[in-house]
Amino acid sequence: MMPVDHLLILGAGLFVIGFIVVTTRKNAIAVLIGIELMLNAANINLVVFSRFDPDFLQGQVFALFVITVAAAETAVALAIVLKVYRHFKTADLDKISELRG
């Protein structure tokens, strides 16, 4: 059995990497990948903590919900990226900035 600390550090590492990807990458798809990394960090945490839960399964069920909802969210996000691409011919977030004020 793996010690819990290692898994929690893995989760924290994934979260930080995801956050850095989100804040530094300029491509909309890359930002979506970063979001996915952050969500998976939370999933690892939830499954690990689920081991200490007296009701036992809540964390694992939560992780399943997160995976499902994230899939739905990504589907909507990709549809929007396609729509943006049709208008702007790019997915570069720096070039998609006509709304200002």
């Binding site: 929007i80 729509k83 943006v84 049709r86 208008h87 702007f88 709304l99």
Partner: peptide, 8 residues
Amino acid sequence: RKRSEAAL
């Protein structure tokens, strides 16, 4: 055009 940008 603007709507898709805002949505993104």
